[in-house]
Amino acid sequence: MTATPRFKQIQEYLQKKIESREWPVGTRVPTEAELCEQFSVSRMTVNKAVRDLVNEGWLERTPRLGTFVCQKKAESPLMDIRNIADEVQERGQRYHSEIVSLQSISSPEDVAMRLGMMLGSEVYKSEIVHFADDMPIQLEIRWVNPAHAPDYLKQNFSTITPNQYLVSQCPLSTIEHTVEAILPPPHVALHLSMDSRHPCLLLHRRTWSEGQLISAALLYHPGDRYKLSARAVLD
Protein backbone atom coordinates (compact mmCIF):
# COMPACT_ATOMS: atom_id res chain seq x y z
CA MET A 1 0.00 0.00 0.00
CA THR A 2 1.35 3.42 -1.00
CA ALA A 3 1.92 5.69 1.99
CA THR A 4 0.11 9.05 2.05
CA PRO A 5 2.52 11.80 0.91
CA ARG A 6 3.82 13.89 3.77
CA PHE A 7 2.39 17.14 2.43
CA LYS A 8 -1.05 15.46 2.32
CA GLN A 9 -0.67 14.34 5.93
CA ILE A 10 0.04 17.94 6.92
CA GLN A 11 -2.97 19.15 4.93
CA GLU A 12 -5.24 16.61 6.61
CA TYR A 13 -3.94 17.64 10.02
CA LEU A 14 -4.64 21.31 9.33
CA GLN A 15 -8.06 20.63 7.80
CA LYS A 16 -9.16 18.52 10.79
CA LYS A 17 -8.24 21.36 13.13
CA ILE A 18 -10.32 23.75 11.01
CA GLU A 19 -13.30 21.47 10.37
CA SER A 20 -13.58 20.51 14.05
CA ARG A 21 -13.54 24.25 14.85
CA GLU A 22 -10.64 23.73 17.21
CA TRP A 23 -9.17 26.45 15.04
CA PRO A 24 -12.06 28.86 14.29
CA VAL A 25 -11.99 31.56 11.62
CA GLY A 26 -9.24 34.07 12.40
CA THR A 27 -6.96 31.60 14.16
CA ARG A 28 -3.26 32.02 13.35
CA VAL A 29 -1.91 28.59 12.35
CA PRO A 30 1.61 27.37 13.23
CA THR A 31 4.40 28.86 11.14
CA GLU A 32 6.04 26.83 8.41
CA ALA A 33 9.14 26.49 10.59
CA GLU A 34 7.01 25.11 13.43
CA LEU A 35 5.29 22.65 11.11
CA CYS A 36 8.66 21.56 9.71
CA GLU A 37 9.80 20.73 13.22
CA GLN A 38 6.52 19.08 14.21
CA PHE A 39 6.41 16.76 11.16
CA SER A 40 10.19 16.43 10.58
CA VAL A 41 9.90 17.47 6.95
CA SER A 42 11.48 20.05 4.66
CA ARG A 43 10.27 23.62 4.28
CA MET A 44 9.31 22.83 0.68
CA THR A 45 6.93 20.05 1.82
CA VAL A 46 5.22 22.29 4.37
CA ASN A 47 5.02 25.16 1.89
CA LYS A 48 3.17 22.98 -0.63
CA ALA A 49 0.69 21.80 2.00
CA VAL A 50 -0.05 25.34 3.16
CA ARG A 51 -0.07 26.77 -0.37
CA ASP A 52 -2.67 24.24 -1.52
CA LEU A 53 -4.94 25.06 1.43
CA VAL A 54 -4.60 28.76 0.65
CA ASN A 55 -5.59 28.07 -2.97
CA GLU A 56 -8.57 26.01 -1.82
CA GLY A 57 -9.79 28.81 0.45
CA TRP A 58 -9.08 27.25 3.85
CA LEU A 59 -6.25 29.62 4.79
CA GLU A 60 -5.09 33.10 3.93
CA ARG A 61 -1.64 34.61 4.23
CA THR A 62 -1.16 38.09 5.64
CA PRO A 63 2.29 39.58 4.95
CA ARG A 64 4.42 39.97 8.11
CA LEU A 65 1.61 38.65 10.30
CA GLY A 66 1.26 34.99 9.39
CA THR A 67 -1.25 32.49 8.00
CA PHE A 68 -4.80 32.47 9.31
CA VAL A 69 -7.92 30.32 9.07
CA CYS A 70 -10.38 32.10 6.81
CA GLN A 71 -14.08 31.79 6.10
CA LYS A 72 -14.19 29.16 3.36
CA LYS A 73 -16.31 30.43 0.50
CA ALA A 74 -19.45 28.61 -0.47
CA GLU A 75 -19.67 27.87 -4.18
CA SER A 76 -22.54 27.52 -6.66
CA PRO A 77 -22.49 26.55 -10.34
CA LEU A 78 -23.11 29.52 -12.63
CA MET A 79 -24.38 27.50 -15.60
CA ASP A 80 -26.86 25.40 -13.64
CA ILE A 81 -29.44 25.75 -10.87
CA ARG A 82 -29.12 23.71 -7.70
CA ASN A 83 -31.13 23.75 -4.51
CA ILE A 84 -29.11 25.86 -2.08
CA ALA A 85 -30.19 23.66 0.86
CA ASP A 86 -28.63 20.63 -0.86
CA GLU A 87 -25.41 22.57 -1.60
CA VAL A 88 -25.01 23.60 2.03
CA GLN A 89 -25.70 20.14 3.42
CA GLU A 90 -23.36 18.47 0.92
CA ARG A 91 -20.57 20.67 2.31
CA GLY A 92 -21.29 19.21 5.75
CA GLN A 93 -22.91 22.40 7.03
CA ARG A 94 -26.25 23.03 8.69
CA TYR A 95 -28.84 24.75 6.52
CA HIS A 96 -31.77 26.87 7.55
CA SER A 97 -33.65 29.87 6.19
CA GLU A 98 -35.50 32.89 7.52
CA ILE A 99 -38.50 34.34 5.69
CA VAL A 100 -38.33 38.13 5.50
CA SER A 101 -41.56 38.56 3.51
CA LEU A 102 -44.02 36.51 1.47
CA GLN A 103 -46.77 38.47 -0.25
CA SER A 104 -48.82 39.33 -3.31
CA ILE A 105 -47.96 42.69 -4.88
CA SER A 106 -48.98 44.85 -7.79
CA SER A 107 -45.96 44.68 -10.10
CA PRO A 108 -43.96 47.90 -10.44
CA GLU A 109 -42.35 48.69 -13.78
CA ASP A 110 -39.04 46.92 -13.18
CA VAL A 111 -40.70 43.70 -11.98
CA ALA A 112 -43.22 43.73 -14.83
CA MET A 113 -40.32 44.00 -17.28
CA ARG A 114 -38.42 41.16 -15.59
CA LEU A 115 -41.43 38.84 -15.88
CA GLY A 116 -42.75 40.09 -19.22
CA MET A 117 -46.09 41.05 -17.66
CA MET A 118 -48.36 44.08 -17.78
CA LEU A 119 -47.59 46.91 -15.36
CA GLY A 120 -49.70 46.51 -12.23
CA SER A 121 -50.32 42.78 -12.71
CA GLU A 122 -50.53 40.61 -9.59
CA VAL A 123 -47.14 39.05 -8.76
CA TYR A 124 -46.04 36.85 -5.88
CA LYS A 125 -42.94 38.08 -4.06
CA SER A 126 -40.73 36.28 -1.54
CA GLU A 127 -37.69 37.53 0.33
CA ILE A 128 -35.69 34.84 2.12
CA VAL A 129 -32.27 34.65 3.80
CA HIS A 130 -30.40 31.35 3.44
CA PHE A 131 -27.86 30.28 6.09
CA ALA A 132 -24.93 27.85 6.35
CA ASP A 133 -23.93 27.07 9.94
CA ASP A 134 -25.91 30.11 11.13
CA MET A 135 -23.98 32.40 8.76
CA PRO A 136 -26.11 34.17 6.11
CA ILE A 137 -24.79 33.35 2.63
CA GLN A 138 -27.63 34.44 0.35
CA LEU A 139 -30.49 36.92 0.31
CA GLU A 140 -33.03 35.76 -2.27
CA ILE A 141 -35.61 38.22 -3.58
CA ARG A 142 -37.93 36.44 -6.01
CA TRP A 143 -40.96 37.36 -8.09
CA VAL A 144 -43.24 34.64 -9.46
CA ASN A 145 -45.98 34.68 -12.09
CA PRO A 146 -49.09 33.41 -10.23
CA ALA A 147 -50.52 31.88 -13.40
CA HIS A 148 -47.79 29.22 -13.33
CA ALA A 149 -47.45 28.68 -9.55
CA PRO A 150 -50.83 29.57 -8.02
CA ASP A 151 -50.03 27.94 -4.65
CA TYR A 152 -46.65 29.66 -4.20
CA LEU A 153 -47.72 31.78 -1.22
CA LYS A 154 -49.17 28.73 0.57
CA GLN A 155 -45.77 26.99 0.82
CA ASN A 156 -43.79 26.66 4.03
CA PHE A 157 -40.46 28.04 2.85
CA SER A 158 -38.82 27.23 6.15
CA THR A 159 -38.90 23.55 5.13
CA ILE A 160 -38.66 23.83 1.35
CA THR A 161 -36.82 26.38 -0.81
CA PRO A 162 -38.58 28.39 -3.54
CA ASN A 163 -36.29 26.76 -6.10
CA GLN A 164 -37.20 23.28 -4.88
CA TYR A 165 -40.93 24.03 -5.05
CA LEU A 166 -40.88 25.74 -8.44
CA VAL A 167 -38.80 22.99 -10.07
CA SER A 168 -41.30 20.40 -8.81
CA GLN A 169 -44.20 22.36 -10.30
CA CYS A 170 -42.60 23.81 -13.43
CA PRO A 171 -39.66 21.73 -14.72
CA LEU A 172 -36.91 24.03 -15.96
CA SER A 173 -36.33 24.38 -19.68
CA THR A 174 -34.28 27.60 -19.85
CA ILE A 175 -32.30 29.71 -17.36
CA GLU A 176 -30.76 33.16 -17.70
CA HIS A 177 -27.97 34.36 -15.41
CA THR A 178 -26.23 37.72 -15.16
CA VAL A 179 -23.65 38.45 -12.46
CA GLU A 180 -22.29 41.75 -11.17
CA ALA A 181 -20.26 42.93 -8.19
CA ILE A 182 -21.93 45.75 -6.25
CA LEU A 183 -21.88 47.50 -2.91
CA PRO A 184 -24.92 46.15 -1.08
CA PRO A 185 -27.90 48.42 -0.31
CA PRO A 186 -28.38 48.91 3.45
CA HIS A 187 -31.19 46.33 3.80
CA VAL A 188 -29.13 43.71 1.95
CA ALA A 189 -26.07 44.37 4.11
CA LEU A 190 -28.26 44.07 7.22
CA HIS A 191 -29.74 40.70 6.23
CA LEU A 192 -26.34 39.32 5.20
CA SER A 193 -24.56 40.62 8.32
CA MET A 194 -21.95 42.39 6.22
CA ASP A 195 -20.35 45.80 6.04
CA SER A 196 -22.07 47.93 3.39
CA ARG A 197 -18.60 49.10 2.27
CA HIS A 198 -17.68 45.54 1.25
CA PRO A 199 -18.72 44.16 -2.15
CA CYS A 200 -21.29 41.48 -2.72
CA LEU A 201 -22.06 39.28 -5.73
CA LEU A 202 -25.47 39.86 -7.27
CA LEU A 203 -26.85 37.11 -9.50
CA HIS A 204 -29.82 38.07 -11.67
CA ARG A 205 -31.79 34.93 -12.55
CA ARG A 206 -34.80 34.24 -14.75
CA THR A 207 -36.28 30.79 -15.33
CA TRP A 208 -38.57 29.36 -17.99
CA SER A 209 -40.61 26.16 -18.19
CA GLU A 210 -41.81 24.95 -21.59
CA GLY A 211 -41.31 28.42 -23.04
CA GLN A 212 -43.17 30.22 -20.23
CA LEU A 213 -41.33 32.75 -18.05
CA ILE A 214 -41.95 31.51 -14.50
CA SER A 215 -39.87 33.62 -12.12
CA ALA A 216 -37.20 36.27 -11.76
CA ALA A 217 -34.86 36.57 -8.80
CA LEU A 218 -32.10 38.70 -7.35
CA LEU A 219 -29.63 36.58 -5.37
CA TYR A 220 -27.22 38.57 -3.19
CA HIS A 221 -24.09 36.88 -1.75
CA PRO A 222 -21.35 38.32 0.52
CA GLY A 223 -18.27 38.58 -1.69
CA ASP A 224 -15.95 37.24 1.01
CA ARG A 225 -18.11 34.16 1.68
CA TYR A 226 -19.30 33.10 -1.74
CA LYS A 227 -18.12 32.38 -5.25
CA LEU A 228 -19.76 31.34 -8.49
CA SER A 229 -18.14 28.89 -10.86
CA ALA A 230 -18.67 27.75 -14.44
CA ARG A 231 -17.33 24.91 -16.51
CA ALA A 232 -17.77 24.47 -20.23
CA VAL A 233 -16.74 21.60 -22.48
CA LEU A 234 -15.27 22.89 -25.74
CA ASP A 235 -15.44 20.89 -28.94
Rank of each mutant, 00 (worst) to 15 (best):
M1T: 09
T2E: 04
T2N: 02
T2V: 09
T4Y: 12
T4F: 09
P5A: 05
I10D: 01
Q11A: 09
L14V: 15
L14Y: 07
E19Y: 06
W23F: 07
V29E: 05
P30R: 04
E32A: 03
E32L: 05
E34Y: 01
S42D: 13
R43T: 10
V46W: 04
N47K: 10
K48A: 05
K48H: 08
A49M: 13
R51K: 13
G57R: 07
P63I: 00
P63F: 01
R64T: 12
F68H: 06
C70H: 02
Q71V: 11
K73E: 06
E75K: 14
P77V: 01
L78V: 01
L78K: 10
M79D: 15
A85R: 15
A85F: 15
D86A: 11
E90P: 03
R91P: 00
Q93H: 00
H96S: 10
S97T: 12
I99E: 03
I99P: 02
L102R: 11
L102C: 05
Q103R: 08
S104L: 02
I105M: 07
P108W: 08
D110N: 14
D110K: 14
V111G: 11
M113E: 12
L115T: 05
M118H: 13
L119V: 08
S121T: 15
E122A: 11
S126C: 12
S126K: 06
V129L: 11
F131M: 10
D133Y: 00
D133S: 04
E140S: 08
I141S: 06
R142C: 08
P146W: 06
P146F: 02
K154Y: 01
Q155Y: 00
F157S: 07
S158L: 08
T159L: 12
T161I: 11
N163I: 03
S168M: 04
S168A: 09
S168W: 09
S173C: 08
E176H: 01
E176F: 02
H191D: 00
S193N: 14
M194G: 04
S196R: 10
P199A: 00
C200Q: 08
L202R: 14
L202E: 04
L203W: 04
R205V: 07
W208H: 09
W208V: 10
E210D: 12
G211K: 08
Q212E: 13
L218Q: 13
L218M: 06
Y220W: 14
P222S: 06
D224E: 10
A230C: 12
V233K: 09
V233W: 11
L234D: 03
L234Q: 06
D235P: 14
